[in-house]
Amino acid sequence: MPDGFALAQQLTLRKREAVAPALNLLDDRRPQSRQAACHLLTRLEAQVKPARRIGFTGAPGVGKSTLLDTVLRRVRAGGESVGVLAVDPSSRRTGGALLGDRLRLRSGAGDPGVFLRSMASREHLGGLAEGARGAVLVLAAAFDCVFVETVGVGQSEAEVADLVDTLVFVAQPDSGDLIQFMKAGVLEWPDLLVVNKAEQEALAARAVRELKAGLALGEHSGDGWERPVLRVSARDDIGVDELVQALAAHNSWLLESGEHARRRRRGRDRFVRDTLERRFGSFGLESQGGVDAIQKRLDAKPDAAGMQLLEELSARIESALTGATPHQK
């Protein structure tokens, strides 16, 4: 069994060869491995890394991977090392998944400064959040810039938004789905909106107009960030520099406005709440006075690591549950 503390140390020293074993460990659901994984994450969380965390989401076929590949090349050329987590859907019925992102994310092949991990979303095992959060922490420890790519279908955006600092929503010109996205509330979450395949000029211009109109109508967190709508073509390499600059601008804004810390905390809190609910059900949460009371406890410790809070609250709930229902034991 790998030692979680030792792995964390190697990651902090940016040893690339520790990354895959750490991710394998996080993936491992056996009890003894959970323990080691917990050590690993607690240690990683204690050392806040400045790594940028950027999410790319959008419907299948809009060219997310190809665009990400182009952006990745720019980021590499700027000297940053890159970790990518590419999430593809699992079949709910069979649990199987086709993970095809390596096919398009080719520019990292043979480059030790790029690490790509494909991940199945595993809806049948409770979904993305728990595994993906740990994976992002591992990648953020070892690399300068972390990308998370997911297929957006409406519900997952909120989840991804809590994993990253900056969320990019990718659309394509002829997607009649834009209206659907707006209805589904998808546009609440992204910080940057990108219309890919801008080589189809007239259509792309229309899509940009639609998105801008959608943004004007829709709700956003009201945090003061003016969300840009960009036109790019991954194919013809148009507008990619502007996208890379916009990513940098958003990152500076996050840091200056204090939103960066707020987002990281929001992600931490969501992780703790969701994991508690999965472990103990709403009944377990009620034993601590419900979600709001739990949130208060989290608010009281803004700098504590998520894993540590999770373990503390889990212990409380467990003792409350066993204490409350001794006759069931």
Partner: peptide, 9 residues
């Protein structure tokens, strides 16, 4: 994938 494996293609 049909038989439940996660397949990196």
């Amino acid at each position: 994938r049909d038989l439940g494996m996660e397949v990196v293609y």
